[in-house]
Computed example of a mutant assay.
Amino acid sequence: MRGAKALFAGALVSASTLVHVPVLLLVALVKALLPLKAVRPALDRALMVITESWIGVNSTLIDVFTTTRFVVEGIEGLRYGGHYLVLANHQSWVDIPVLQKAFNRRIPLLRFFLKSQLFWVPLLGLAWWALDFPFMKRYSRQQLAKRPELAGRDVAATRKACEKFRHIPVSIMNFVEGTRFTPAKHARQASPFAHLLKPKAGGVAFVVGAMGEAIDTVLDVTLHYEPARPTLVDLFCNRVREVRVHVQARPVPAGLSEGDYETDRAHRVRFQGWINEMWLAKDARLAAWNAPGAARGD
């Protein structure tokens, strides 16, 4: 029975995608063909309304097809017109629909830095492109050894995206660990955190430096599942008992957007220390939630 419900839910998610994405692409095409400043704000708003509707339908399907308990803390006072940097631990592919469900229409659309290969995902790749998601091309060490000039292309793409984001309400999403948590990865890293992988500060530092004071607030998000690390199939098969999303708004420390992370060692140490402090607090929170007999969310 659960499998049949999950298949039906998946079919409805696919149907919603097939309805929303063509309309999204049509508006994006009009925007590209009519690059007039007078109409661009209206077209940009139309793109957001379509995307928020798409996310809203998917979130409603989660509510309809599951009995999963969602406990979301700390979202009071968020502004739809703000400029946010959203930093979260990465547990599962479920993280993305959970974050979208928690933040949809509360803050600007979450935008992720995506691998360039994802542009070719049917329908979704074009949708991400239409919504100005930055696509980043990663190069292997062998490629960089042969062509060192490639090393700066990701930086240039990030800077270009951030320049655009300075002038519009935006929420830039970053999974600071760089990959989903698994016990094997945790052991391989010898991570000093009990429930987290080591955070990578470089990408966050570049966004903060490129955006400068345009970043209003950092949203420090802790994600937790019961049972741990579910798949999307687990979610729609109603195997996830509880999802917890804890949000803590933080300021960017004074002067942290002004240094050069790549060349200034003192700035790099300070920036990594700031990220590590967040991760220590996040690890303690996860430890409390995982403790035997821990109280469930209200």
Rank of each mutant, 00 (worst) to 15 (best):
S14P: 00
D298E: 13
L87S: 05
D44A: 11
W274V: 06
G202Q: 14
E163L: 13
D216S: 15
E177H: 11
A214M: 08
V208I: 15
V155S: 14
N238I: 01
W279T: 03
A249Q: 10
E262M: 12
I55Y: 08
A266D: 15
E149S: 15
I96A: 08
L123P: 02
R265A: 13
Y84L: 13
T222I: 02
P230W: 01
A295K: 12
A284I: 00
K200M: 07
G259H: 08
G259V: 12
P199T: 02
F112H: 14
L18C: 06
E76N: 13
F70M: 11
A210D: 09
D283T: 09
L33P: 00
E242M: 00
V240C: 02
G202M: 14
A4W: 13
V240Q: 00
A42G: 10
T182I: 11
A156K: 15
V64I: 15
D44L: 13
A295F: 02
D63P: 03
L286P: 01
L78I: 09
P169K: 04
G273P: 02
E258L: 14
K282N: 08
H90A: 14
K185V: 04
L12G: 01
R138L: 10
A201E: 06
W120R: 02
R45K: 15
L99C: 12
T179W: 07
R296Q: 10
M211A: 09
P108W: 01
P253C: 11
V218T: 05
A145T: 02
M1L: 14
A190C: 13
W279P: 05
R141T: 06
I172N: 03
E73Y: 07
L12S: 01
N174W: 08
E163W: 12
Y261G: 00
D154L: 08
R296F: 04
K137L: 09
R268G: 07
V27S: 01
M136F: 14
F133T: 12
E242S: 02
V233G: 04
F135S: 06
H186Q: 11
H246P: 00
V207G: 00
I275S: 07
N276E: 14
A187C: 09
G56E: 12
A15E: 00
H90F: 14
V204N: 01
V245L: 01
F271G: 03
A287K: 12
D298C: 03
N104M: 10
G297C: 03
F193L: 10
C237N: 06
T182V: 12
K198W: 03
D44K: 13
A102F: 11
L131W: 08
P122R: 00
V121A: 11
L34G: 00
P227H: 07
L26D: 00
F70A: 07
A151G: 07
R239Y: 01
V21M: 01
V39R: 07
T68Q: 04
P148L: 09
R45S: 14
A42V: 13
H20N: 08
V218W: 01
N174F: 08
A145I: 00
A38K: 09
R241M: 05
P108L: 04
Q272K: 14
A284Y: 04
R265Y: 10
V71L: 03
A9W: 03
Q272M: 13
D132T: 10
T68D: 07
A9Q: 02
V39C: 05
L256F: 12
G259L: 11
T60V: 14
E52Q: 15
L118M: 12
L150D: 05
A184F: 07
P230D: 03
Y139Q: 09
V218S: 02
F70C: 07
P41L: 10
I168F: 09
